[in-house]
Amino acid sequence: MSKMNLSVSPHIRSARTTQSIMLDVIIALTPALIASVVLYGFRALLLTQISCGFCVLLEFLYEKLLKRPVTVSDLSAVVTGLLVAFNVPVSMPVWMLLVGDLAAIILAKQLFGGLGCNFMNPALVGRIVMMFSFTTALTTYTGSAGLVDAATSATPLADPASYGFMELLFGLHGGVIGETCAAALLLGGIYLCVRGVIKPIIPLVYIGTTVLLTWAFGGVAPLRSALAGGLLLGAIYMATDYVTSPITDKGKVIFGVFLGLITALIRVFGNYSEGVTFAIILGNILVPYINDLTETRPIGANPPAKKEAGK
């Protein structure tokens, strides 16, 4: 018998892999990680490393336990670990962070079938669980050993008037470790667009809508609402998560507008000063419906009413 491979065409594949995409996301998040160390000290790096390591370990153990193929080499757990850590302040106790990782990897991702099957962004689920469980720890921005003054308490969203443009751009204020340095986040976002990992549609539409509506609803200065809080981190790195965002360009626009609307509503009228997390999670839930509404129309397709059989 022949030993030659008889696979179906095509017989060549592009070099792009899931792993290389995740690696690009990690590279894109690196400037923000460096900024977090500069701003808040080495504990920021430590928290990030622990979070990544724990996420990978959890995924590995879960898959081993359930005798499923181990997929940690796709690096998606590393990305989740990074994003969970980016959502906590530098003073966060480690065990609380690990609870967030657990929620992200097990609750949001693996219980639904792993990569590609989760319907909510794992890192944001981790953040929400931490937000409700450890509200005080998650919103206490003290204990910094970096550039940011440890005594600084009010975030730019809570007290928008107290910070200048440069302080917002470089993140010289209290906040969670990954979201404050706008310049680093934008740099990573540009990298992701150039590398073709994400399309700029969701970030641009989302940020644009938020800025416009917070200005219209509450008169917040546009630049301020764009640079402050978790909007950049959320819009560039979380709302663009393939699995939990619409698959067509049209759908991405609708998604971006929806996220912007919810974020603006929460920021202006809500009890929380930050609306990004809830907006994206709500948006995630709508994705299947948006996908249904925005299916592509194949070129040459007859009108849908007509049903035909076979080729």
Binding site: R13, T18, I21, L115, Y242
Partner: peptide
């Protein structure tokens, strides 16, 4: 031919 992994819905 590389082993297929799960669809990540990148589009």
């Amino acid at each position: 031919i590389p082993e297929p992994g799960p669809c990540i819905r990148c589009g």
